[in-house]
Design a protein around this nucleic acid. Structure first.
Lengths: 153, 153
DNA sequence: TACTAAATAATAATAATTATAACTTAATAA
DNA sequence: TTATTAAGTTATAATTATTATTATTTAGTA
């Protein structure tokens, strides 16, 4: 965790941004809650526990900055809010998501399943892919099992 | 065009929704501007030309309804607005998009490139895919060519 | 034609995000 | 070190997108 914080620190410095205490607190929250998909508001409330004097606008600015540097991905699952998702260290691309329309859970797929598709897009459309966003909507394993149980009762 | 409008009319009736003149005007705008990716505001302004008395909230409600019926897809390219995209007739899935980060253009890919990926997701994660959203961010053909010209000058 | 649930217009309200201004802190140069 | 400048911050105002409310109208139907 400290290691990854250091890396992010260096990335900021490389672009001559400072790692202020507020920014550090924000990054720490993101690292601690890596498996979640926090909204700006969520992040704000969690950061406030570490640094109660922080303002909401600062959190927004920090998340914006981290998005620009590709440290986090700003994603949107269709509800009104943007969510911020830490990118795996060294990953070139945003990872994929499985959103269950039944229970609302979000699973992550870290492996990149789109290599072949990107090749097709490059070849057929002449498009130079820099990043992608892939989300599947459907029914997760758990909900399917629940459905089956209910039906057999 | 009339044919597709009729189909949509029937789909509404099948779920016992009424086809009001406002809804018809909204659907007409979507059909006419199928290649675009209009925001609710855009749709509102265009519908107003046909039906000046329409209210913004009605457009929102209509788009919401059409989204529910899978007649349009509500998509989000990362700017603050939701955009509404008519689904091809009979298509089960949302189509894919190529967003150019240079000029902002949006191309559509109608073919479904994710069959194989969906099979993997079903097998490995036990996830029952109902729909997907796939967007590539990168540089479009045009912008790449422009870049090359500039560099060789 | 009259009825009734559904739909609408015209706001008002809310939620998410961004901009502004005054102040603080940190970095840099003399 | 001190003076100067730039970057970052808080607090708050403003904006933008969207949703809720309420009184009124209308589409589909008996």
């Amino acid at each position: 965790m400290e290691h990854r914080l250091d890396r992010i620190k260096k990335e900021l410095h490389a672009k001559s941004y400072k790692l202020t205490p507020q920014r550090e607190a924000t990054v720490r929250v993101l690292l601690e809650r890596e498996e979640d998909h926090l909204s700006a508001e969520d992040v704000y409330l969690l950061v406030k526990e570490k640094a109660p004097e922080i303002g909401l606008a600062t959190v927004y600015r920090t998340l914006e900055l981290l998005t620009e540097l590709n440290i986090v991905d700003k994603i949107n699952f269709g509800d009104g809010v943007s969510r911020y998702d830490l990118r795996k260290e060294g990953a070139k691309h945003s990872h994929h998501h499985l959103v269950c329309t039944d229970c609302g859970s979000v699973e992550e797929i870290i492996e990149d399943l789109l290599d072949d598709v990107e090749k097709i897009v490059a070849k057929e459309w002449g498009f130079l892919v820099k990043d992608h966003r892939l989300t599947f909507h459907g029914i997760c394993k758990n909900c399917q099992e629940k459905d089956n149980e209910e039906r057999s009762e």
